[in-house]
Design a protein around this nucleic acid. Sequence first.
DNA 1: GCTCCGTGTTAAAAATATTTGACATCCTTA
DNA 2: TAAGGATGTCAAATATTTTTAACACGGAGC
Lengths: 71, 71
Amino acid sequence: MPAIRNQIRELRALREMTQQQLADQVGVTRQTVIAIEQDKYSPSLETAFKVAIALGVPLEQCFQYDSRGRR
Amino acid sequence: MPAIRNQIRELRALREMTQQQLADQVGVTRQTVIAIEQDKYSPSLETAFKVAIALGVPLEQCFQYDSRGRR
DNA sequence: GCTCCGTGTTAAAAATATTTGACATCCTTA
DNA sequence: TAAGGATGTCAAATATTTTTAACACGGAGC
């Protein structure tokens, strides 16, 4: 569980997009989307970019590095 | 070789930073820095974030997704 | 000439990300 | 109650990233 948070679930809800639909657009499996959404591990930069694009936001609006010491 | 470009070499030169120094700050090996710098593969999002931070720029200023059809 | 430093390469091993497939739960709706 | 959709979990296999270690090359300086 890396020090990275994400807004996938919220963004997905905003666009009324299912995990399966996001997975298809990104080109990964549903399990991968679940794992990333739940911070199970740090995705590859390429996958991260594709997720952000599929959700229609810049990468940093989808993933934030937890700069150790959240205030 | 993913569709992602990066400005690592240029940013590193700007700060007069060696590959080894960057690797140390990021917490990876020199070979990893070389591989990323040369687009050998897509790093993990976590590593990408650390590289950007070490270089003092936001992630998207360091890595750009090659949105297939660069104009 | 030699040596140090920064860079690049290679191969094999280790670690981590991703896939495949199967099954469970909770809603909704017929 | 049965069925379908969306989500979640698990384990094993595969793919990809990262490490380790060794060696090569060019440039700068002595």
